[in-house]
């Protein structure tokens, strides 16, 4: 494996340390390790069923690992409650949109904004009078050009718009570690370009770990690529090195080529 920072390093954003996960007899992850330095844009590649989403659930705390540890910013979070992870600055999106379908766009973002704010405990003061929360919500609406959609009920938006909100919701609380599970899946070419441009413009105070199927998107964003196959890391390195790795060509690129042909058809 290529050299990357060691666990315990203060410059480290995320450490996955020999994480395993089994569902009954099915082994979804086997001793997966990776180290993501602070501020890096890391892409997690791998064919369907490789275990990428399961790894995200373990980092996010939605599922416990069968073995191994997770460290965020040098702190062991393996058994930390999910809301404590969020408070540490960890935010994630889901492969399938997970929004508040009956609430408006504005209310969806407001929920993202107030999640880590003490103002969310306020019981008798109208939400609209919490200036800090309202201003941040407005800022997000402007930034993502959702201004004219603010009153629209989310379940009535297009898929592309919903996919976008899925990501804005995670960004609303200004996370330090952002996990994005296939953020561009199902998006049109121009919507994908927008997401790529936005991720490119994110500040270095945010560490990004991103699952991506589209090799082209991965190429444009990744500073480092980790390839997962059948629950194991098969490659880990800069994009050029990983691309040239024959094992990667075998387990991923072959499948990917087939898939993108299938998609074009």
């Amino acid at each position: 494996m290529t050299t990357s920072p060691a666990p315990g390093d203060t410059e480290v954003g995320l450490v996955v340390d020999r994480v395993s996960k089994s569902f009954g007899g099915i082994r979804a992850l086997h001793e997966v390790s990776m180290t993501v330095p602070k501020g890096q844009r890391r892409v997690l590649l791998g064919p369907n069923g490789a275990g990428k989403s399961v790894l995200f659930s373990i980092i996010g705390g939605q599922q416990p690992p069968t073995g191994g540890r997770i460290l965020a910013f040098g702190r062991d979070i393996t058994r930390l409650p999910r809301r404590r992870r969020a408070a540490l600055g960890l935010a994630r999106t889901f492969q399938l949109n997970s929004l508040f379908p009956r609430l408006s766009v504005e209310e969806n973002l407001f929920l993202g904004v107030q999640a880590l704010d003490r103002g969310s405990r306020s019981l008798l003061r109208p939400a609209s009078t919490h200036r800090r929360l309202v201003e941040r919500t407005d800022e997000l609406l402007r930034e993502w050009r959702l201004d004219d959609r603010r009153g629209a009920v989310v379940e009535e938006l297009s898929y592309g718009e919903q996919r976008q909100i899925e990501m804005v919701l995670a960004l609303a609380g200004r996370p330090r570690l952002l996990l994005l599970d296939e953020p561009t899946s199902g998006l049109t070419k121009s919507e994908t370009d927008e997401v790529v441009a936005f991720l490119g413009s994110l500040g270095r105070e945010i560490t990004v770990l991103l699952v991506e199927h589209d090799m082209d998107v991965a190429d444009r964003l990744a500073e480092w690529i980790t390839v997962l196959s059948l629950g194991e890391v098969v490659a880990d390195g800069p994009p050029g090195v990983v691309r040239a790795d024959p094992r990667v060509r075998e387990v991923y690129l072959g499948v990917s080529a087939e898939r993108s042909e299938g998609r074009d058809a």
Binding site: R82, R83, F94, F100, A115, L116, H130, L133
Partner: peptide, 23 residues
Amino acid sequence: RSPFGVALRGIRDNEARMDALGY
């Protein structure tokens, strides 16, 4: 109408996401 009230509706609509957001 308070932030708490908005959060309740969030829980009604999608408990798992509220949890992931840190509520």
